[in-house]
Amino acid sequence: MSLAGLTIGRGRESLRVIGHVAVHVFKESVRDRVLYNLVVFAVLLIGASYVIGQLTAGQDVKIIKDLGLAATSAFGLFIAVFLGIGLVSKEVDRRSIYSLLAKPLTRGEFILGKYAGLVLTLAVNLAVMAVAQYAVLGYMAWTESPEFRASWEAPATDPALLKALFLIFVQLSLITAVALFFSTFSSPLLSAALTVGLYVVGHFNADLRNFEAVVDSPIVGGLARSLYYVLPNLAPFDVKNAVVHAQPVPLGYLGLTTLYGATYVAVFVLASIFVFSRRDFK
């Protein structure tokens, strides 16, 4: 067999192993009753849609969209952080890492499989939440008069909502990579604190760019500007407001923002592999 054939064969084998680990992570999250959050989400949305109509002077569709997208983002964040931080540390604590590493899989495949499994869990969660949100919005559109529907900024079941949901998914994939990275070398508690910290900083990131204008020291200003470029800026992933108010979100924007997120995912996953490969479990 040629070298190229060997490489392709090894690549396929790697993909099979990564897929196997990913499915295992997904099944484990189902066993851990992670999908129960979907029931909470559905009840929250349906209950809120019933109550909000009485309180909001005709803004119920806007508020249901806001609530649905915000809840999707918040539930996803909880899943990404609290499952992400345990991906590696749980295996170490349970000492199952020894039997796993004795199997024919590399540490890189192990990390990639874990990451893919959690992203798969997030994708399934977000897909079900999207369906629940469209169902509630569809019902609201169905029960309203055509004249009232005409006053909405965007249709209740606006397909553009998918753009916001997609960027939430990309952002959560990035947060998952961050949580995974921290979980390769620190305790779950510290990993959670660091991941949430990075999430918060990611939303203040734009301020770092303008830090030079408010400090006298050029060193501090330069440092802040460097941090602005190094730390992930999470603001571009938030297009909820634009989508709810029927503002255009071009495909080019989606593409570039996804690419931006993907580069950070690659950085954190590669860093996770690097750190994990050097850990000594003896």
Binding site: T56, Q59, K62, I63, D66, L67, L69, A70, S73, A74, Y199, V200, H203, L234, A235, F237, D238, K240, N241, V244
Partner: peptide, 10 residues
Amino acid sequence: ALSFDDLLAD
């Protein structure tokens, strides 16, 4: 509000 400003506006 981080990214939850729309919900807070509501």
